[in-house]
Structures are given as C-alpha cells and as structure tokens.
C-alpha cells in the first residue's frame, strides 16, 4: 500500500475527526515544489496511541516497526512525526501530530512499539514535548536539571549550570 492508501484506510476506520488530513507533495509549480516523502497523515493528538495500535495490529497495515520518531518545531506548533515500516508487507507510512507550543502533550506510544520509549525521552529532553502515560520520562541525553529545550527555535542557553558558566 502507498502512504496515500494507508491514509484512506485510517480515514475509513477512524473518521475525519481523528484523521484530520493528508500532508503530501505539491509539484504543480516545477520551480518551487513542496516535497513530503512519505506523505504524512495528520492525527488528532489525543487519539495517536489508538491509531498507532491499529496501525500495528491491523492485518492490512501490519506497521510493526517504528523506524523513526522525530520532534519538530514549526513555530506556533510543535509536531511529532512517526515514520513507520511494515516488515510483513514492505510498505511505509508516516503519522503526524501537531500540538500547540504552550500545551505540548502527546500520548505515549511506548506500549505499541517498545523502541518509542527512548525516542520519546529524547524528544522530551530536547524539544520539550511531554508524553503522557510514558513510564519513565527522566532526562536521557541532557544532564539532570538542565533548563530549556535546546532544539526549540527560541532556545537560549542558561547562564549557569550548577555554578558553572555556560558556555564555559
């Protein structure tokens, strides 16, 4: 299945309230095309864990491998993109969740794919997205007590970390 067909399959199952749109390439203007490879299915934040579980267990989809979980800063919104792959069928898909910058909470998918656990901890550290229901959101990459989220566009490093000048 192509990412577009997978999107339609999700739309049939969950409806337009949950699967809110498909972000895909627009190559109508050859001078300045916009590329999304693969196309991304927009999912309402509160439903992502259910949609993820369906993606993994549905016989037609069988998206059993989470290739990559990326957190992005888009200004007013932060987003999480899940790049999925099916070992059984060999197709790929991408889910995307946008959340407002001031209330960045996304349900965790670590019960769907174990590997998401550390990816979510990393995204929490660096982009400041809280994953609700995550078993262990301690800092993974940043030191304990570091202030701010370095990958946000408006990040400014703190002046002192435990009495040490930053940058030293």
């Amino acid at each position: 299945m192509t990412p577009e067909e997978i999107h339609d399959h999700l739309l049939d199952r969950f409806g337009g309230d949950v699967v809110t749109g498909l972000v895909q390439s627009d190559e109508s203007d050859p001078k300045s095309p916009v590329i999304y490879d693969p196309a991304q299915s927009m999912i309402g934040a509160s439903a992502i864990a259910d949609v993820a579980m369906f993606c993994r267990d549905d016989d037609a989809l069988r998206l059993d491998a989470l290739m990559c979980l990326s957190a992005l800063d888009r200004g007013a919104h932060l987003s999480v993109v899940y790049n999925l792959h099916s070992m059984a069928h060999g197709h790929v898909a991408a889910l995307r969740v946008d959340v407002p910058r001031t209330a960045a909470v996304v349900p965790s998918v670590e019960r769907v794919w174990t590997t998401a656990s550390w990816h979510e901890r990393e995204a929490h550290d660096l982009m400041g997205i809280a994953f609700s229901g995550h078993s262990d959101l301690r800092p993974l990459i940043l030191p304990e007590g570091w202030e701010g989220y370095p990958l946000r566009k408006d990040y400014e490093a703190q002046e002192y970390y435990r009495g040490m000048k930053v940058p030293f």
């Binding site: 300045s32 095309p33 590329i35 993109v81």
Partner: peptide, 25 residues
C-alpha cells in the same frame, strides 16, 4: 533543496541509519 520533509535510511555497519530532513527551501 526544495521545501518539504524527507526520511531516508541506509545500511551502516551498525544497522539502519536514518536521516529526517525538514527543509524550508
């Protein structure tokens, strides 16, 4: 590169190394 988002992976000695690039043009 054109604006957009792309994910690609290759086989390194340690496994699938993926790059997710978000380009604004």
């Amino acid at each position: 590169p054109p604006a957009g988002e792309i994910y690609m992976r290759t086989e390194t000695p340690r496994g699938d190394l993926g790059y997710y690039i978000h380009s604004d043009g």
